[in-house]
């Protein structure tokens, strides 16, 4: 039985890595039927699979379409497992909250969605504001949700100033220290992040997860 469980969790992780949505659902159903703990299955199956997918993405084995399909398989499995989580586990640990969005003027959200997926599978609670979001809205949401991290993305050079504006407003309102600000997107660079006073710059989605862990001292 123990053997069977390990094997099933491994297969579930593989289904995510192999972008196989149907297989992920099928395995999740077997796992539920076998009475295996849903929380463990999410952690050792689905999240483990996404971690491998993220690594393959960093190694340039996988690119964005592949990563998106892995996350589809992951979410499909999650849909089956989630209702079987024991209540206490759902509320057991307070997750670190991240407010994420694409800055005003920009509607390119591929990068933002990837970061969201990877952060979510790494155990963060994500408040996704969507795209074309004004600087003040980021701040309002972060305050309201008591978030630790504000993650802002842009893909257009024309909107980069909005990223600086978020930090300017935080300083103006004397709450800069309450939040860690992470920036990313094609035209953004480490130099730009330093210049505007962001806490970190993520060159890609996989890096964003690592940086988020650093910013929150490994708590996620």
């Amino acid at each position: 039985m123990a053997n069977n469980k390990e094997e099933l969790l491994k297969q579930l992780a593989d289904a995510v890595v192999d972008m196989d949505e149907e297989k992920a659902v099928e395995l999740a159903q077997i796992i539920v039927a076998e009475g295996i703990d849903a929380y463990e299955a999410i952690e050792k199956g689905l999240s483990a699979g996404m971690e491998v997918a993220g690594r393959l993405f960093e190694e340039e084995e996988y690119f964005i379409p592949e990563l998106l399909m892995c996350s589809d398989a992951m979410y499909a499995g999650l849909g089956v497992l989630k209702p079987h989580l024991k209540a206490k586990e759902g509320a057991a640990e307070e997750k670190v909250k991240v407010v994420i969005g694409v800055i005003e003027g920009d509607t390119h959200d591929i990068g933002k969605n990837l970061v969201k997926i990877l952060l979510e599978t790494s155990g963060y609670e994500i408040i996704d504001l969507g795209r074309d979001i004004s600087p003040q809205k980021f701040i309002d949401a972060a305050k309201e949700q008591d978030a630790k991290i504000i993650a802002i993305s842009t893909l257009m050079t024309t909107t980069m100033d909005g990223l600086a504006e978020v930090i300017r407003l935080l300083r103006q309102q004397d709450i800069r220290e309450q939040f860690k600000v992470m920036v990313g997107g094609a035209p953004v660079s480490q130099a730009f992040a330093d210049k505007i006073g962001a806490d970190s710059y993520a060159v890609n989605a996989a890096t964003a997860v690592r940086l988020a862990r650093q910013l929150t001292d490994g708590v996620a």
Binding site: M19, I64, P65, E66, L68, M69, H108, D109, I110
Partner: peptide, 11 residues
């Protein structure tokens, strides 16, 4: 929808 289109390129 770009997220869907990127996946469509593969699936």
């Amino acid at each position: 929808d770009p997220m869907i289109f990127l996946k469509d390129l593969r699936r």
